[in-house]
Amino acid sequence: MNNTPNSDIRIRLGTRNSPLAMAQAIETRQRLCAAHGWAEDEVELVPVLASGDKVLDRPLAEIGGKALWTKELDQWLGDGLIDVAVHSAKDVETIRPPEFCFAAFLPRADRRDALVGAASIADIPQGAVVGTSAPRRASQLLNLRPDCRVVMFRGNVATRLAKLEAGEADVTFLAAAGLERLGQSEVGSPLAVDEWIPAAAQGVIAIECRADDEATKAALAAIDDHGTRCELEAERALLAQLGGTCHSPVAVLCQPGGEGLAMRAALFSPDGSERVEGEVLFDPLDHAPVRALAADLLARATPGIRPHFGGA
């Protein structure tokens, strides 16, 4: 918590300065204020320009991976310039510095991808150019539609929509949750999760603080969503066991099923020609079945898939 003398600020939320990241920080502030009866101006938003927002002409995997979304916030959090870092959970590396902890996950929003430029995967025109920089989206698309051609597309929502409008691609993908948070739910066609598997952690706002900051952890506990935490911890356990990186084409769906959680995961070769998948039911408090699913997927992984995962 902020201990600045004579300050009316109770807590400082660090965030990337993109429109979507700011919307996520504003939602976090609203939830904190509602939970604790704070005035809005008692929670300060501290924007930072992330390295991942500076370089947009190359795939993320080529310039440092997911750490480019977090390194500035990590630095500010470690230096005590902010009390909290607000992240899109899917943009956070699987292995995090031990001095930080996830103190809260906000309730999961829509986990689906939205297809922009066509009503469905089947409706994408033959031989269409598809813009995406995500290995999961590219490989899953090519698995279903090998006739399409993928081109690199990076930038925030507005940038990618502008590129689409300019004819740089025929279709693209955006996270339905991001569109919803920006007030643009009418954009695109959400893809059913039984046909198109989303990314691990998609639709979740993750809130990190210093592991030794007990006051901030206690404040954030009031807005932590237990069900979302159970899903996220299981999804991150799968990624850790797979040894996945930002290069790894992996799709994961985890949601309530049976008396616990159900997980479905698929691994792809980058060109989409090879695919292995599996599913498991498990108790949210026991990740052994999740790790076993990861081991099974790796054991069945084909030569085109296996080099992209480092798990044992």
Rank of each mutant, 00 (worst) to 15 (best):
E40V: 03
V280Q: 14
G78H: 12
V151F: 13
A122E: 12
A301L: 10
A169N: 09
L164S: 10
A166W: 01
D296T: 01
V116R: 00
D8Y: 01
L32C: 07
I121F: 01
I197Q: 02
I197P: 00
A221F: 05
V252W: 06
A61W: 12
N2D: 15
V204R: 02
I11L: 15
A292Y: 00
E231I: 15
F105T: 07
R16H: 13
W38M: 05
P198R: 03
A118L: 08
D213Q: 03
P198W: 00
L141Q: 05
D113W: 13
S189Q: 10
E62T: 15
F100G: 06
V204N: 04
T302V: 08
F173D: 05
G203R: 04
C148F: 08
P190N: 06
T302E: 14
S18P: 02
L297G: 00
R145P: 11
Q202M: 12
C209Y: 01
A114M: 03
L238D: 08
R10H: 14
P98L: 08
D296R: 01
E42K: 02
S133L: 00
A103F: 07
G52R: 02
A294L: 00
I11V: 13
G78K: 06
D225W: 05
F100E: 13
A299F: 00
E40Y: 06
E277H: 10
L32N: 10
A192L: 07
D41Y: 05
G244P: 02
A262T: 06
W196V: 02
P307M: 06
I26W: 03
R10W: 11
P19Y: 08
S269L: 09
L285N: 11
G244W: 08
A39G: 14
S139A: 15
E27S: 09
G52C: 01
T15D: 01
T159H: 14
E44N: 00
L81S: 12
I95A: 10
V116C: 04
R210S: 04
E62F: 08
E42M: 10
D57M: 05
G178D: 15
P307Y: 08
R112G: 03
P289R: 01
F153V: 00
A221S: 14
A222V: 05
G188H: 06
D53P: 14
T4M: 07
A21D: 15
R12S: 13
R12C: 15
I9S: 10
D283I: 00
R160I: 07
P249R: 05
D225Y: 01
K163T: 02
I207R: 03
R300S: 12
L285F: 02
G310F: 12
W69L: 10
A34E: 08
C148G: 07
L267A: 08
E27K: 08
A25R: 02
L20W: 08
T216A: 15
V276I: 15
T228R: 09
L68P: 12
A175T: 06
L144K: 11
D91V: 07
A262M: 13
G257V: 12
